[in-house]
Computed example of a mutant assay.
Amino acid sequence: MHLSGRGVAMSVFASLIFAVIPGYALYLGPLDGVQVFAQRILWSLPAVFVLLIVAGRISMLKEALLRLVREPILILALLLTAALLGVQWLIFVWAPINEQMLDLTMGYFLMPLSLVLVGRVFYSEYLRRLQRIAVCFAAVGIIHELWVVGGLSWVTFLCAVGYPPYFMLRRWMGFDSFSGLFLEMLLLAPVAIYLIVNYAPADAFSIAPQLWYLLPGLGLISAMAFAAMLGASHLLPLGLLGILSYIEPVLLFFVSVFWVGEIIESGEWLTYIPIWIAVVLVVFDSARVLLKQSRRLN
């Protein structure tokens, strides 16, 4: 498969899995959002290591460690990416538990536009005609939401602006997606241990024994989804990655309404319909490009 085809497939896979995680977090009581975040970090760490082995990337992990020794500036960059990642992972499981799912969804609607802007300003990336039209439709929906609500919540803001600098740093660092994620998990692990030791309910696993298999499952799907998203970020232009990222908030919207049970006011449909049109245009455009690529290969 062509590199951009692989990138599109990985991005869609990541969006599908990420959309499941907020609903999944609702079944992890009596843990609150912070404890789910801490447990997610600890259970994701072995899952990412197993994926490293299965994918044959151990040599790349060794190379990344050697680069950290040779280039100390990368250690500072890794600390920053770990912090940015930690904030996003915390919000992602805290929001549904605290009835902030729609704010989270709006943040992920805004985040792709942030990626498109970063790709255009910092990497001189250009969008095809249908992609530009899709961005315009998405912008109409978002502007309507801003007009109706009158501003952005802190959850929405952090989701919208957190990932672009993360992806830029990861691209500059040049680490393999699995290796970089594993190193970030290692840096976040002490924070997770501290939160669990000092603040976790002592009888959580006796009250809810299903946590023994639900938490490892959360770690596994988190690792797979994030590794796929990072792989897509290395294979695709940031502009295209940003457009494809609209698939995730559309799915999160359905999770918010039909799984979490949040209510959409009648006026808010004018926010979501233009964005859904944008997604349809993106899917059509991507499918057309991939079809042309396959014809050239054949």
Rank of each mutant, 00 (worst) to 15 (best):
M1C: 09
M1W: 14
L3P: 11
G7V: 01
A9I: 07
M10P: 10
F13S: 14
S15P: 05
A19K: 04
V20R: 04
G23D: 08
Y24Q: 06
A25Q: 05
A25G: 02
A25P: 01
L26E: 12
L28K: 07
D32I: 06
A38W: 02
A47H: 07
A47E: 04
F49I: 01
V50L: 13
L51E: 02
L51D: 02
I53S: 10
A55Q: 14
I58R: 05
K62Q: 14
E63A: 13
L66V: 05
R67F: 06
E71Q: 03
L74H: 08
A83S: 08
L84N: 00
L84P: 00
W89T: 03
W94R: 05
W94F: 15
A95C: 10
N98S: 15
Q100S: 08
Q100C: 04
D103W: 01
F109E: 10
F109P: 13
L110S: 11
L113A: 13
L115M: 14
V116A: 03
V116Y: 05
V116N: 03
F122I: 03
Y123I: 01
S124C: 12
L127T: 14
L127W: 09
L127N: 08
I133Q: 07
C136I: 15
A139M: 06
G141L: 00
I142C: 01
I142L: 09
I143C: 02
H144Y: 12
W147M: 06
W147I: 07
V149A: 01
G151S: 00
L152K: 00
S153C: 00
C159P: 12
A160D: 08
V161P: 08
Y163N: 10
P164M: 11
Y166S: 04
Y166N: 06
Y166E: 08
L169M: 15
F175M: 14
D176E: 15
S179A: 15
S179R: 11
L181F: 13
L183H: 05
E184V: 02
L187C: 06
L187I: 10
A189C: 01
V191H: 00
A192H: 02
L195A: 05
L195Q: 09
V197N: 12
Y199M: 12
A204H: 10
A208T: 12
P209I: 07
W212N: 11
W212G: 05
W212I: 12
P216R: 07
S222Q: 03
F226V: 00
A227H: 05
A228F: 05
A228D: 01
M229E: 10
L235G: 05
G242R: 02
Y246T: 06
I247S: 13
V250K: 03
L252A: 03
L252M: 08
V257P: 01
F258G: 01
G261I: 10
I263H: 14
I264G: 08
E265K: 13
W269E: 10
A278T: 06
V279A: 06
V280K: 03
L281H: 00
V282A: 10
D285V: 07
S286W: 06
V289C: 11
K292I: 11
K292W: 09
